[in-house]
C-alpha cells in the first residue's frame, strides 16, 4: 500500500507538468522541451524568496509563480516568436536550446549545488492503512488538485481560456472572429510556465532543488501527457497519477534503477500502440 501514497505524491507533480505541456500543445500544436525547466525555476525561486529572503510562504508562493509566468511570456517572445522558419525541426531544436540556456542561467545564478528550501510547515507523518504519508505529501496532492481545478475553470469559463481553445480548433477562424492569436500563444506559454513552477514549488521541500532537475521531470511530465492523451485536460491528470503509481509500484517489484525507465517505456509503447493516449480523442493527421 505504501507505493500508493508515494506514487500519488509524485503523480500529482507529473500531472501538473503534463498540464503545462497540454496548454501549449492545445494552442500552438507545439511540444515545449523546456517545460521541465520551469519546474526547476519554481523550486529555485521559492528557495530564493522563502529560504534566502525569508518571506512568508503565503506571499512567496504566488510571487514565485508570477515570476515564472513572466519568464514564460518572455520565453515565447524571445525563442518561439523569433524563429523564422517555423518547421517542426526548428521549433523542437529551439526549445531544446532554450532549455539548455535556462538550465545554464540557473546554474550561474544558484550554483551547481543542491539547495534546500526548508519546510513550509512542521513535518508530521500520518498513519494510514498499510503505510504512512507525510503532511508534506498531502499538501502536494491537495494543492496540486486545486491548481488543476482552477486551471480547468480558467480554460472552460474565462475569455482567455475560450480563445485558447478556439485557436486550437482553427487558428484562422479564430483570427477572423477577432481573437488575437499571437496574444493567446504568448499567454499559453505564460500559464504553462506558471503551472510548471507551481509544481516545482510544491515538490521542493521533499526533493530539494538542483539546477539540472528540470530535464528528468520534464520528460516524465511528457510521458504522463502522452499516456493520458496529448491535449486532453483530464487525460493529463489521469496520466500523471498513473505514471506516478506505476513508477512507485515498479520500484517495489524490480531493481529500483529501472524505475526511471518506466516513463520512457510508456512513451514508446503509447506512441506505437495508441498514439492518441489512453483518454485522448483520435486526431487526424495534418498533411
Amino acid at each position: 500500500m505504501q507505493f500508493l501514497y508515494s506514487g500519488l505524491t509524485g503523480g500529482s507533480i507529473y500531472a501538473l507538468v503534463a498540464l503545462g505541456y497540454n496548454i501549449i500543445y492545445n494552442t500552438t500544436g507545439l511540444i515545449n522541451f523546456a517545460q521541465g525547466e520551469f519546474v526547476m525555476l519554481g523550486g529555485m525561486l521559492i528557495y530564493t524568496l522563502f529560504a534566502v529572503f525569508g518571506m512568508p510562504f503565503i506571499i512567496a508562493f504566488p510571487l514565485a509563480v508570477v515570476t515564472a509566468l513572466i519568464v514564460g511570456l518572455l520565453f515565447e517572445r524571445v525563442f518561439i516568436n523569433l524563429v523564422r522558419v517555423k518547421s517542426d525541426i526548428n521549433l523542437i531544436t529551439v526549445t531544446i536550446a532554450a532549455s539548455i540556456l535556462l538550465r545554464d542561467f540557473a546554474m550561474h545564478i544558484w550554483g551547481r549545488d543542491t539547495v534546500t528550501v526548508g519546510e513550509f510547515m512542521p513535518v508530521k507523518s500520518i498513519e494510514l492503512p498499510g503505510g504512512v504519508i507525510s503532511n508534506q505529501s498531502i499538501m502536494v496532492i491537495a494543492v496540486g488538485a486545486c491548481i488543476a481545478f482552477i486551471l480547468h475553470l480558467f480554460l472552460k469559463r474565462s475569455k482567455y481560456g475560450r480563445a485558447m481553445r478556439a485557436c486550437f480548433d482553427d487558428m484562422t477562424a479564430a483570427g477572423i472572429c477577432g481573437i488575437n492569436a499571437v496574444m493567446v500563444r504568448v499567454m499559453s506559454f505564460g500559464v504553462a510556465a506558471a503551472v510548471g513552477a507551481a509544481a516545482g514549488v510544491l515538490i521542493s521541500p521533499i526533493t530539494f532543488v538542483t539546477y539540472d532537475d528540470g530535464l528528468m521531470i520534464g520528460l516524465k511530465g511528457f510521458a504522463a501527457a502522452i499516456l493520458g492523451g496529448l491535449g486532453s485536460f483530464w487525460g493529463a491528470v489521469a496520466g500523471g497519477i498513473l505514471l506516478g503509481l506505476l513508477e512507485s509500484f515498479a520500484a517495489t517489484i524490480m531493481p529500483s534503477g529501472y524505475k526511471d525507465a518506466i516513463a520512457f517505456v510508456v512513451i514508446l509503447l503509447i506512441l506505437f500502440v495508441k498514439p492518441a493516449g489512453l483518454f485522448g480523442k483520435r486526431m487526424a493527421k495534418r498533411v
Binding site: 525563442f79 526548428n90 531544436t93 529551439v94 531544446i96 536550446a97 532554450a98 539548455i100 540556456l101 545554464d104
Partner: peptide, 12 residues
C-alpha cells in the same frame, strides 16, 4: 551556455 546560445541563434 555557448552550446545553447549558438544553437538558438542558428535556429532563429
Amino acid at each position: 551556455l555557448i552550446y545553447g546560445g549558438l544553437l538558438a541563434v542558428c535556429v532563429m
